[in-house]
Amino acid sequence: MKNKIIYWVSTLWLALGMLSTGIVQVLKMKEEVDMFARLGYPSYFLTILGVWKILGVIAVLVPRFSLLKEWAYAGFFFAMSGAVFSHLACGDEAKEFFGPTLLLVLTVVSWYFRPADRKTISANLNQ
């Protein structure tokens, strides 16, 4: 029961964070466009990343499709670790990479505590 609570709390916070940042990116809000430019990324990358985040949230939350969930978690991990590295590489202050770091931690916690019915078959065989 404890693992289920940890899973759902971390997953819902992850979904909220990814959905809200995905929407901000798809809408190309000025602050986000400015930040991406400062990090050295083109503005069209906002649309790509935002759409992937929104689709990833759907994949993680809907029942079944365990392989798709693995891909979504991997995408979240790559996107957020890339964001943390980008902020570090640009010499940003800690407050700038707090959000991506939190989402990275939530991704790992949600993935680790996911129920058996949300894992791929090969992962179920190893347990």
Rank of each mutant, 00 (worst) to 15 (best):
4 K>C: 02
4 K>G: 08
6 I>Y: 07
6 I>V: 15
7 Y>L: 03
9 V>W: 00
11 T>V: 08
12 L>M: 05
16 L>W: 04
16 L>S: 01
18 M>E: 11
21 T>V: 10
21 T>L: 09
21 T>A: 13
21 T>E: 02
21 T>Q: 08
22 G>F: 06
28 K>G: 07
32 E>V: 14
35 M>T: 15
36 F>Y: 12
37 A>T: 15
38 R>N: 13
41 Y>F: 15
43 S>D: 13
44 Y>I: 12
45 F>M: 12
47 T>N: 14
47 T>R: 03
48 I>C: 10
49 L>T: 15
51 V>H: 08
51 V>I: 15
55 L>N: 09
56 G>Q: 01
57 V>L: 07
58 I>L: 11
60 V>I: 14
60 V>N: 03
63 P>S: 08
67 L>E: 11
68 L>K: 02
68 L>Q: 01
68 L>F: 04
69 K>Y: 04
73 Y>N: 09
74 A>K: 05
74 A>I: 13
75 G>R: 06
85 F>L: 15
87 H>K: 04
90 C>F: 10
93 E>A: 12
97 F>V: 11
97 F>K: 06
102 L>Q: 00
102 L>N: 00
103 L>Y: 04
104 L>H: 01
104 L>F: 14
106 L>D: 01
106 L>A: 00
107 T>C: 04
108 V>N: 01
109 V>H: 00
111 W>I: 01
113 F>H: 11
113 F>Q: 02
113 F>N: 06
114 R>T: 02
118 R>M: 13
119 K>V: 05
119 K>G: 06
120 T>N: 05
120 T>K: 08
121 I>A: 12
125 L>S: 10
126 N>L: 15
